[in-house]
Design a protein around this nucleic acid. Sequence first.
DNA 1: TTACTGACTTGTTGGTACTTTG
DNA 2: CAAAGTACCAACAAGTCAGTAA
Length: 899
Amino acid sequence: MAVEAPSKHVFDYDDEDDDGPVVFKRSNTSSSKQNQLNSEVKKASSQRSDGQSGRQASSVRAPNGQNSVAQTNKSIPPSKSPPIRSPILSPKSSNSSSKASPVVSSKASTSFNDQSKQASKQNKFTAVKEEKSPIKCTDETNSDDDDDDDSKPLSARLKGISSQGNKGVSTSTPAQSQRFVPKIEVKGSAEDPDDDAPLSARFSTKSNTGTSSSKPYGSHEKKPLASKIQQNGSIMKVKQQKSSMLSDKRPLDKGNSSDQSYAKKPKISDTPTMMKTKQVTVKAEKDDEDDHIPISQRIKKSVSSVSKASSVKQKATKVVSSSFKKINKKSKKDMKKSKYSKSSKLSPSSGDGQKKWSTLVHNGVIFPPPYKPHGVKMLYDGRPVDLTPEQEEVATMFAVMQETDYMSKPQFKKNFWEDWSKLLGRNHVIKSLDKCDFTPIYEWHLQEKEKKKQMSSEEKKALKEEKLMQEEKYMWAIVDGVKEKVGNFRVEPPGLFRGRGEHPKMGKLKRRIRPCDITINIGKDAPIPECPIPGERWKDIKHDNTVTWLAFWNDPINPKEFKYVFLAASSSLKGQSDKEKYEKARLLKDYIKNIRAAYTKDFTAKDVTKRQIAVATYLIDKLALRAGNEKDDDEADTVGCCTLKVGNVECIPPNKLKFDFLGKDSIQYVNTVEVELPVYKAIGQFQTGKSKSDDLFDELDTSKLNAHLKELMPGLTAKVFRTYNASITLDDMLNKETKDGDVAEKVVIYQRANKEVAIICNHQRSISKSHSAQMSRLTEKITELKGLLKELKTDLDRAKKGKPPLKDADGKQKRNLTPEAIEKKIAQTNVKIEKMERDMQTKEDLKTVALGTSKINYLDPRITVAWCKRHEVPIEKIFNKSLLAKFAWAMDVDPDFRF
DNA sequence: TTACTGACTTGTTGGTACTTTG
DNA sequence: CAAAGTACCAACAAGTCAGTAA
């Protein structure tokens, strides 16, 4: 099955292997968590019927995103190496098979009782499926369309949203259709597979009514309002079933079966000594027998097993296979080198207060080199001034910023001067910033930059290597026996604070951080990292395994805040929580209809707080606004939903709202949207009697809002809506828009969907300096081509009459071509022009839109991976190396996975 | 109930390594 | 091959949100 990967795709992991002793193993960390969670849950979820959604209808959702098999093998490569590349080769074939067998998912978690934790692991393998198939969701009440809609983001439903504003672009929007009004339906469950189900099951939901009381759903109903309301017989039944199944609650954890996947990563244990001990013991929960098997083997195994066992899975595996191959190789190596130990099963659970790791070994952090004085003298009042190294260092920080627009901000200069003048001392010749001329230092800086640029590539390489050598030991940590990359092991160097927007503290000196500022968090048995600066020592050493940070220090700009050193995004700890995030968002899919119905109902509630909550929730859902926490006066003045000011929203009759405010990072959000009339009216009410700078939602803050959301769905908070709307939009667009075509065309489809999401989330970037130049160059080229076209047409006419072509611009005679040849050329030129015009259009469209942010933070990678598998698009076309590493947990998803 | 504290995610930017184009 | 363009990534700022203290 494994398809072979084109060589190109294969990574060479060799380099990475170096880390000697480490063993890779992947424990299934997940286990612990998962176990708890849910086997049962899963079932439950699967059962739900969601008659409604179109998707479900399709029924085939993969049983769960993950396959058991797949999971087992997690493709995650040993830490170092970038994960997987899996070109997905033959997806189709695989797919078919899988589809055919509806539910069998090997992995599906099954229902288990918590009791047997051990069992739990097994669960994965057991297939669960029964429920699914049988249940058809029929929800008569809703029409398919409706269903579909539900699953879509609100915005999609309403067309109103016009553009997002971006820097300036405002849009107006016409509304198209509004079908917003939620209906109450039964909430069906989607058939989702497995992974997700759990949460809901565990928690009880409350009724949606706004503030309402919540009743726990507990056992019986999974879904709230809706369900009750409209059920039809059939539906009801289903529900009931579900509910019954659900009944027990599990602890919240995040868990999902999902965790499983993690488990499989290979771990490396470096320091064999320490780690091993611990891990080994754990017994396995069985999850896998595989655990003890090295990854490579597992992978293979999985592949093979798949074939045997579940047809379903096969697909997935295949697709990914290529990547696996590589891995396999590697892993083999690893095997030789190392010994495998089993990791303890404790999985990091995200639950708070929960244990995140059992053993943690790392080498602390690395400090920036001490300041090297350059001796270049700045001028004061036209005369050179002597500065101490400390003074010069800060002067240089300022000098370097000459050409930035911070220089035009009085606040920046003021703050800088306050801090720098302190360093200069009272009696210094320099009395005012106005008479300072930093040009000599700035020029020195430019020269240095130039020198660096001019270095030969060998020199550069050598420097790089040296740096790497120094940093190597800090780059890795060993967490529960697995070698993981550390994210930011470099302590931030001193500098001038660059706040975004009109930050009141911009320009302040961010002082140098020293070891005595730093608190280290490390396993009890691990050696305490040596302090890299002789004669100094760490501020404190902790052994707190309920947190994931390796070190922190207080932010020098805002001492009550912290700067943490965490593991890299590719680590399993991060991956796990990432996965949980998406599972929560998927869960929202099952609740969204009711939630929308509930807040719609509350638009006209008598109680003002209730009404504000309803409207705020609507805005968060429809416009993907952020929650909007309160901010201090010493921060930039930006807002989110709960902190919107009256002046940020303008009512445009009959029912449009124009938003204009600065959001996170002082990015402007401008958007004119058509809203439901009750919302429009409510906003008007909230505004009356207030001044522009008053809070629009005076009764609200994020904790109240989130407390309310939590009543509607376990774990629900405002930001979940962003994740949900982003991912559902991607899933929806990809499935709707993808057509046959070559890979490049499919990639374009993906990018278009990605762009849509970026627009919804208002992810902006600044226009590149060369943008206009690039555009005019393109225009020029197009004009040129058009000229050529004209010429060709003339030639064509002449050729038809048997005349020779006209001379070209240089007066040379052109070759005599047949009319057919000329026609061909014309066609080619036309194609070229069209392509250029298209490129120009996209370039213009994307000039202020950043696609990366949503890809990194909002789009469930399983959607992408599954789509790639289904459409034979190599995943590398969509995810770069670091995303592949970050999303290693998603690589073995079933091709049928739908968000 | 509010105000902090703490931990962790999300977001833009700027430099640089890598590619493409002329 | 150099300049232009693009893709990546690290840096680090700025959010979210839970928990605890006041």
